[in-house]
Amino acid sequence: MTIKDQQQRWGSCTANQQVLLNWHIFLAPMQAIDYVIAHELAHLTVMDHSEAFWDTLSMLYPEYVASKEWLRIHGRQLYI
């Protein structure tokens, strides 16, 4: 896992299974942080955003929808 300064993403997962997280996510509420980490960990199993991915994410973090929506609405405020 690597912490980076990214302008476009909260996190990403590379083909070699390296998880990258944007340091700005750590300014968010814990639920949003949990969502981003679970999202990237789900990519270790399913690399795309197919139905299988969202099913995997739902198993890891069942409350992901509310956290994803919080980031959509408030995420830009985390860039200081």
Results as ranks from 00 to 15, higher is better:
His74Asp: 00
Ile37Glu: 02
Gln17Pro: 00
Leu78Asp: 00
Thr56Trp: 06
Ile80Trp: 05
Arg76Phe: 00
Met30Trp: 09
Gln31Trp: 11
Val36Leu: 05
Asp55Glu: 15
Glu51Pro: 10
Gly11Cys: 05
Ala52Thr: 12
Val19Arg: 14
Val65Trp: 10
Asp34Lys: 09
Asn16Lys: 09
Leu21Met: 03
Ala32Gly: 06
Tyr64Ser: 11
Thr14Trp: 07
Asn22Tyr: 08
Leu44Cys: 12
Tyr64Lys: 09
Asp55Lys: 14
Gly75Asp: 00
Ile33Met: 13
Ala32Met: 01
Leu21Pro: 05
Ile25Tyr: 05
Ile3His: 02
Ala52Tyr: 15
Pro62Leu: 03
Gln77Trp: 02
Leu78Thr: 00
Gln6Val: 01
Trp10Lys: 05
Asp55Ile: 15
Thr56Glu: 15
Val19Trp: 07
Phe26Ala: 06
Glu51Val: 14
Ala52Glu: 09
Lys4Thr: 04
Asn16Arg: 10
Ile73Trp: 01
Gln7Lys: 07
Gln6Asn: 03
Met47Thr: 12
Ala28Asp: 08
His43Asn: 07
Asn16Ile: 06
Ala38Ser: 12
Thr45Ile: 13
Leu27Val: 11
Asp34Ile: 12
Leu20Val: 13
Ala28Ser: 13
Val36Ala: 15
Thr2Glu: 15
Arg76Lys: 00
Leu41His: 07
Leu57Arg: 02
Ser67Gly: 08
Glu69Tyr: 08
Ala66Phe: 12
Asp48Trp: 04
Lys68Trp: 00
Thr45Asn: 13
Gln18Trp: 06
Ala66Cys: 11
Ala38Asp: 09
Glu63Ile: 10
